[in-house]
Write a protein that binds this DNA or RNA. Structure first.
Lengths: 153, 153
DNA sequence: TAGCAATCAGGAATGATTCCTATTCAATTC
DNA sequence: GAATTGAATAGGAATCATTCCTGATTGCTA
């Protein structure tokens, strides 16, 4: 359930360094939010992190937790599991296929890979349970968003 | 933007057949909800489907759309993109890794694959934009849920 | 075509996330 | 080590997607 101490310490050191490089203030709250994520193997939700950090910083607000997690994800110091545009999205294509997801606008498109290795269940996946389905999730910036963004700079 | 007519017709036929096999009533609403998903390439959200179906069935309720989409996903006639447990989940592990996601309890765990082909960006992924990250998403039932469920039957 | 279980409509409730605003604080400078 | 200042915070209100509730409707079977 816990990440080994030496890895956590490495993550914390890199985090401090990255915050300074990116001119993010090292607030008590920010540090504890990151630490709580860095020690956990379970990919906790924001509310879980809030609950845990509150044991040490009893007045920390939900908003601070959400704000920091989003900010850190934006700066590439942590990542958000799945798609960030979080409404349920549905799919009638039940055949083997993969997804390209645009991190800016939430566009999702199917693609198919000619590389059959990608369609094979890795044995390591069985460590945690019985696999049922397999999909490659590629995050990126779609053509539309790329064009739009280029104009902005 | 649209799926070719012959594929849509094939999907509709299979859908009718599957509903009968599974003793799901063929209501007007259910049919139109599925049809709207079957013709779309964009993995629409529930609200989008609701808006579109309403053009033909003006009194259809949101709940009906949500209820049917969830039911059809449960029966394996459609699928939900991403994780069904939809709270944001965070990750401090920025190295290359993959995810095992339990469809019952939402457990997420990292695993690593020795197969390097899985770590290579498929060229087909570039069709829709500039890829940034790559991850294998394996859905399944975790050990804990499997044990619990076996007891129930 | 009658009966019944499944399904539905509409509105209220829930729960996660974000917004608002006055206050606090980390970091820089002197 | 005090002053300054823009970034960050707390707390509560607001929003938005999703689900629940209840009474009415409808597909299916006989």
């Amino acid at each position: 359930m816990k990440i080994p101490r030496d890895i956590v310490e490495k993550r914390m050191a890199e985090f401090l360094e990255a915050c300074q490089r990116k001119c993010l203030k090292l607030t008590h709250q920010r540090l504890e939010i990151y630490r709580e994520l860095a020690v956990s193997e379970e990919h906790p939700a924001a509310e879980t992190i809030h609950r845990r950090v509150r044991r040490r910083l009893p007045t920390i607000s939900q908003d601070t937790v959400y704000r920091n997690l989003k900010l850190l994800a934006q700066e590439g110091l942590i990542s958000i599991v799945g798609m960030s545009h979080e409404r349920l999205r549905f799919d009638a294509n039940m055949g083997m296929h993969h997804h390209f997801v645009c991190v800016h606008c939430g566009l999702i498109r199917d693609f198919y890979s000619s590389n059959s290795a990608v369609a094979t269940m890795p044995k390591e996946a069985k460590t945690f349970g019985e696999p049922v389905s397999l999909r490659l999730e590629v995050k990126g910036v779609c053509h539309g968003c790329r064009t739009r963004r280029r104009g902005k700079r």
